[in-house]
Simulated assay, not measured.
Amino acid sequence: MPIPDIHRQRLDRALREHDRALERISREKIRLETEEEIHRILLALGRDPGVLDGLCAIHEDPEIIDELEKDADSVLQERGVSLPSGVTIRVAEPHRAVQADISVRGTVFVVQWDLELGLSTALASGPTPADAEAAAETPRPRTAHRPGP
């Protein structure tokens, strides 16, 4: 005896729901893994003695920011600082803050160190925790980062 049509329709509907659930879980898993990797990079940078020494040096001699702007790679190499994969350093205007852009799987997280304001962080682009499913389907436009007051 074949499966009744109504039972087959219910089975097909249930299978589609499970497919959607797995897709949602997969996107959330990737978002969480990305977020975890960004936090690990932030912790590594924040605890790196070379980075901390560099921040102290910038406070003692703000002209180092000019050197970073011209050739960040050379300045970091001279100070023995090696950045994790996906991290780039630049000088951000208008405050002349030292900025690290951390890029992981299409998500960009920005960290700034400003001589007056200290540390500020922001998600520049990528999925947000509040709306991971929609963000996974429609990437957010990149937004400018401004340190908080």
Rank of each mutant, 00 (worst) to 15 (best):
Q77D: 14
F109I: 03
A122E: 08
R79G: 09
L55F: 04
E69S: 14
P129Y: 01
P129E: 02
P84C: 06
P149D: 10
D101A: 15
P94H: 03
P4A: 07
R142K: 13
L42T: 12
A130E: 15
L119H: 08
G54Q: 12
L42W: 01
Q99M: 12
L68C: 08
L55D: 01
S26A: 06
E116D: 12
E63I: 09
R20T: 02
R10S: 12
G50S: 08
R24A: 08
A130D: 15
P84A: 06
A136V: 03
D5Y: 01
V110W: 10
H39V: 02
A21S: 03
S74P: 01
R13T: 03
I102Q: 06
R10Y: 02
D5W: 01
L117N: 04
V111R: 10
V104Q: 07
I64D: 05
L32K: 02
H39A: 09
R140M: 05
R140V: 02
E28S: 00
V108T: 15
L22S: 03
T88C: 06
L42R: 14
T143C: 05
V81C: 02
P149G: 14
R47P: 01
Q9S: 11
E67F: 12
L76G: 04
G54H: 07
A72S: 15
A57R: 13
T143R: 15
I102V: 14
S120V: 04
R140Y: 01
D5T: 10
E69H: 13
T88W: 01
S85R: 14
S74K: 15
L83K: 09
T107M: 09
R105Q: 09
I102R: 09
V104H: 11
I6N: 06
V81F: 03
P4K: 14
A72K: 13
L52V: 08
H39F: 11
I6K: 13
V111K: 08
V111A: 10
K70M: 11
P62G: 06
A97C: 12
R8T: 02
V111H: 09
S120G: 13
G54N: 11
G118T: 03
L43S: 08
S26Q: 05
D12F: 02
L76A: 10
V111G: 03
S26M: 00
T128R: 14
G54V: 10
A72T: 10
D19R: 03
P127F: 02
R24P: 01
E137Q: 14
E116P: 01
H39D: 12
A92E: 06
P94V: 08
R90A: 09
V98F: 05
L123Q: 04
A97D: 13
L83M: 11
L123N: 04
R105I: 03
R31K: 00
E78F: 07
L45A: 03
R24K: 06
L83Y: 09
K29F: 04
T107R: 14
R142Q: 15
A134W: 09
D131F: 00
C56H: 06
I65Y: 04
G126F: 01
A122P: 04
L55W: 02
R146L: 13
L68I: 14
